[in-house]
Design a protein around this nucleic acid. Structure first.
Lengths: 248, 248
DNA sequence: GGCATCATATTGTCGGACAATCAGACACGC
DNA sequence: GCGTGTCTGATTGTCCGACAATATGATGCC
């Protein structure tokens, strides 16, 4: 019958006002925000209130600080920021390894196909380099995992689609721990990954979308196989490590 | 040679400490947080500092308030919260309609296939109901768009994969405006959507993953065709509307 | 032009204050 | 019993004022 009567505390109204101006690009990226005192004067609220509003925008990734700097600058959310939020949410929603893998399986072939059709020469070079770096890092388990992720990232970059680039981050972040186990425990994993990457690179180089998607499908299916061989329970819940900088 | 010496302001350390406990599930969902004064006492910081920390967690969706309530409760990020962050980020990254569509195209067939394999009886009923509601809403453009989105959501729910459920939100949110235009301007759009939904429902009911994916591919391809017929420039940047509750 | 020096502005944090209002207890009338 | 007033205490939202640490920008010097 009746709508709940709208009310929003001042810190929310302030943060929304600033957010709106950023989204409307009236505050351009890289621009410095006015000082807290100045904002307080303009909004006619106390500086403490302004600060609460700023904290919200800061954690949304819309405002950031330059290394060691004092002032806040308008930024756009980095992949890491978005990915952190998403993977944190997934961890709390009790997403399992199999769920994330399934999403990977669904998205990556599309990314590979898009990359094959649109890749620029520079992007192809980066992709090739990423595959090379993976092949090069024998032994070090952690480095290998990082490079596998870097390969996916390079592919998304070649697809030149910001949606893909943002989606990659959280999925890889959540899969990394289990990936490390696979590489440790499945002897043939390294060779298979290397081969798949080689084929994908070749398909992308040849602008062959179909082949790229196909090899990517095999590549991700290999991961699944790896889970089974490594004896990782697919129903394990993924975990999000708390930010390291929080060492109190 | 040397790492930058770590330093984090108190409000950050406090917010990370609370965040960590939530992620470790030491603070269970639904539990009420201690009062601000109590937190200030425990962390040995000022209440203002605690409040800044709380604002961060609040906008990350980890803390929420019950309607009209005062206390903060531990919550997990809702689809809307996550989707809002993601779509906002995409808007700032100048994602275009075609980019989001491409992602939709990549993900939805996978979702449909998963839904077909795993759907429960209840989920199937919901999906059928969603398709029915879409077919029912003749005329009202806005309602139709909402129902199209609801259909995708019901499908993701049938797939019982939190990753898919969270990914749907931002994509649909960003596509809604252009979807509305299609439905307005392309006469045959309604019928085609209805037909595709019917086929997808049938495939899911029959647990036919392949057919479900296939029909979904056609369904999304139809959207693309709709853009062209409606004369929507595929390179249009998607826009994220600022939160409505921010009416000052 | 590049570099050391210094004054100023700005942030991070604190303490205290007060109004609004939410939650729970309690009594009252039907 | 259930819905309705009334009261009290606790809690949040907001303000004010203060101060140390330090980033920023101007200044002068070579």
């Amino acid at each position: 019958m009746f709508q709940p009567v709208a009310y929003a505390p001042a810190y929310l109204r302030v943060s929304e006002a600033i957010r709106a101006r950023i989204l409307r690009r009236e505050l351009a990226e890289g621009e410095a925000l006015p000082t807290e005192t100045e904002l307080a004067r303009q909004f006619e609220v106390n500086r403490s209130t302004v600060r609460e509003a700023l904290r919200k925008l800061e954690s949304a990734g819309l405002l950031g600080r330059r290394r060691g700097g004092k002032r806040l600058y308008v930024t756009r959310p980095t992949r890491e920021a978005v990915g952190g939020g998403l993977s944190q949410a997934l961890a709390l929603h009790r997403a399992r390894v199999i769920d994330v893998w399934e999403a990977l399986q669904a998205v990556q072939p599309g990314i590979a196909a898009a990359a094959a059709t649109r890749r620029s020469k520079a992007a192809l070079a980066k992709l090739t380099a990423a595959a090379g770096r993976y092949a090069a890092c024998k032994g070090e388990r952690q480095a290998a995992v990082t490079e596998v992720a870097a390969f996916f990232d390079a592919l998304a970059e070649a697809a030149a689609n910001p949606v893909f680039m943002l989606l990659n981050e959280p999925m890889l972040r959540l899969l990394k721990p289990s990936l490390a186990e696979i590489i440790d425990r499945v002897p043939q994993a390294r060779a298979r990954i290397e081969a798949a990457q080689r084929e994908i690179v070749a398909a992308v180089a040849a602008r062959d979308a179909k082949a790229a998607a196909e090899w990517m499908t095999r590549h991700t299916r290999d991961f699944r196989r790896g889970y089974e061989v490594a004896g990782i329970d697919l129903a394990t819940e993924v975990a999000e490590a708390p930010v390291a900088s929080a060492v109190s």
